[in-house]
Design a protein around this nucleic acid. Structure first.
Lengths: 207, 207, 207, 207
DNA sequence: AATGAATGAGGATTCATTCAT
DNA sequence: AATGAATGAATCCTCATTCAT
């Protein structure tokens, strides 16, 4: 029994260590990708920041690509679940668009580095930015509900979803260059537009 | 005099030729950047498509970067002037937001390659804003007018501009993956949102 | 005394175990070398097939090279003794070339993996001779006898030995790509050439 | 006309230069491969010996492999044609085995580096040594003639070809470690065996 | 002006070997 | 004795840029 527990201890320690190294690498990689973008990020720099040898990187990730993908995948998994939790906590009966927008912007504000990578450090051209996809999915669920209730007649649902996503994405990107406003204020700006629209004035001739 | 005019002729011919080569390179480069993105685009391929030698490229552009910048700069200069012309033609008294959105989307639809480069093939991280900047500027003029007339109380003007730009940009990006709808339909979707907002329904609890 | 015997038992068991592990590694290594060749064989794969940790490999062999050398050395020691036994069993008075060739090809046919390593997976350039050397030695003893009896006048003994070795080696290499003929048939082909030579016909002009 | 000839001159000079560089690389590569074998040969060393930059290597060969293949391909093409010429010169009516063996060994002696690469510096395991193939082809033509005339009853033709090839190959390999004997003497040793066979003595019990 | 061969720094990836546990 | 995570030197290959012609 003693032996068992010791062995178990060892195993746990090994696993813990392995996990810690993996996290170190992922954090370092996220920073480097965020700073330089996919192409200009070098494994050497990631390794240095994670305080490991170059070769160690390859013990945890098959190649540069896999690390990149992992950051996005795991990052957005966290995003999705956090946002979902926030929504569920506030409005158990069903999410409203306002709550969703607030939740997304709150989380995005805290995870700027991740969003920066996803929005600008892309590896491929065709990636319509995985962020957009993640955001779009969340928004889609709400709009689909509304659509089912025939509340969105006149709108093409996929396009509407995409356009809202574009707006929210832009709100997030705003923070790449500015530090204010805070997420709530930003969310209110977005919601205001979506709720009331702009004054008729701007759509007609301006004399 | 005769000699002079000959020289002049030569000069002119030389200049015309130079101009043609420059355009060839720019066209080839735009295609290659659009196909592969900044990083994967090689000078060799650009040169081949422009039917010139690699070295010749460097007689016209200082480096890869300069060609890239030139494409965006000249491209958006054209965009701006075309859109402005379109607006002026339709509504001499002053543009309305509807007209601007229609004009922008029309032009963008025709210049997909350019917009694709600007939106996805960026060289640096902070760059996706090149298109956005161009679009934002046009929109800003209209919103500023409205703002001056106190019609936009409650909105932060720069942020509002940015958000609208995000929506329009997203509409353009939609065409990177889909061929429909046509620019007018797309513009109408955008305008519908901005004019009426979404039904109150989606902002409140959904029972 | 009791303690002693226990210790002894332990020691023996330890030694036996050590021996078994060593053999496991050697077997795994032989397979991997045979499959991939020296350079493409990785310690990691050898360790995996031997069901040990990478580090353990280095407890038994100083480096990749030593394992490789050991395989060849021990392999050919076995070859030599088996062949010698076979000869002694058949012809106690002294071996004949026929018997030797039969014996060598029989053994080689069964030990293809080893011979494949020795002939094609070599580490260094000057090495293809390891097998050759082993074969040559056996053949040399016979030829030297004959030479002593002045039966090989006109032949340079070392060269003759080498040439016969080349022929036999080639016979073995034949099996790297073909499964037939069986060792006896193959041996008879070799012997036929060495016994009668080729018809005079092929050495003169062919009208 | 003057312009034409100048242009032509330029073209020729360029082509000549290109050809020279290619040859330089091939020569350097042949040496390095011969010294270190395929795997240990580094492009850097080849480039240095050819007195070019690393990148230049890749202007002429797609990768290490292609250079290696080219050396063998071109090398054996030369071998074949030289040997064929030699044969044709001596015996217009049809080659005899003696002449072929002399010719092969003569050429091989002069091209030791090439043969060393082909025989020992192989890249893949399955390569039954392209040399062998080249030699085998030449020998096959002669033996097939004889076979057609039913002079080789009792022999399996492909195996016989292979065995002779093995012998000749071994003769060439001999020179990797020794400088003597000269090609003619060596050829005579080979021919002597093939013509008369070994004394019956060595095949029977040796009392 | 045009050419295109040459350059060489830069970066990804591998794997034999070590060593703390 | 055994483990297997960590190391980092070594090597291939790319491509923007230069420059002799």
């Amino acid at each position: 029994m003693k032996i068992d527990s010791i062995k178990l201890g060892k195993k746990r320690r090994g696993a813990r260590r392995r996990e810690r190294t993996r996290t170190d690498i992922l954090n370092a990689a996220r920073d480097v990708f965020a700073e330089h973008g996919y192409h200009e990020a070098s494994i050497a720099e990631i390794a240095e920041r994670a305080d490991i040898a170059v070769g160690t990187f390859y013990l945890y990730f098959h190649d540069k690509d896999e690390a990149f993908e992992t950051i996005l995948d795991e990052g957005f998994e966290v995003t999705r679940s956090r946002v979902m939790e926030a929504i569920a906590a506030q409005e158990p009966d069903g999410a409203t668009l306002s709550i969703v927008i607030h939740a997304i912007l709150h989380h995005a504000y805290e995870q700027r580095a991740l969003f920066r990578i996803a929005l600008t450090g892309s590896k491929q051209l065709t990636q319509p930015s995985r962020v957009q996809h993640a955001i779009a999915e969340i928004i889609a669920t709400i709009l689909e509900d509304a659509h089912r209730q025939a509340a969105l007649i006149g709108y093409d649902l996929p396009i509407l979803t995409s356009l809202l996503t574009g707006m929210i994405t832009q709100a997030i990107a705003w923070w790449f260059e500015h530090d204010t406003p805070d997420p709530d204020t930003m969310a209110n700006q977005v919601i205001r537009i979506l709720q009331h629209g702009l004054p008729a004035h701007v759509f007609t001739s301006q004399t």
